[in-house]
Amino acid sequence: MSSVATKMAPANGQARILVLGYGNPGRQDDGLGPAMVAEIERLAWRNVTAHDNYQLNIEDAIDVAEHDIVWFVDAARAGPAPYSMSDLSPASGIEFTSHLVRPEVILAIARQYYGGSPRAFLVGIRGYEFEFLEELTMEAKHNLRAALAMLGERIRSCQTGEAP
């Protein structure tokens, strides 16, 4: 058990890319993040690792530190459709509950403790309904497809040496 993650260059010289999709698939469009991960797994993108979870956890910093580019994918209750995208920077903070860990905090832990400073982006896919149901709304599915296309394009650009 090592306290510091080793940051090795990928064997094929390409950037190591991580997609973290999070949310609750039992709450309709809140499952957009995991749905993105499911799509990426179905498409089997090369050099892309995709993980889903109900929410971010501090140990995600280990995975984050071991990648060059990280995409956090969450549902968005408001904001532009089909999605919004923003750069993320490490930032610390403290909440009143363990039921919320922000991606900026994950990045801060990855940098502070593991020396990993990947480029990171947050994709907020617009959702509309968040009730106790297990299926995305039609509008959310449409937004997911658009976000998936964008992500695929950005990742391909990155793998061909262009900026993500």
């Binding site: 949310g23 469009d29 809140d30 993040g33 209750r77 009143f96 509950t97 039921h99 919320l100 947050l122």
Partner: peptide, 9 residues
């Protein structure tokens, strides 16, 4: 059952 849609608390 809090969902985790993008946002602060």
């Amino acid at each position: 059952c809090a969902t985790h849609a993008l946002g602060q608390m």
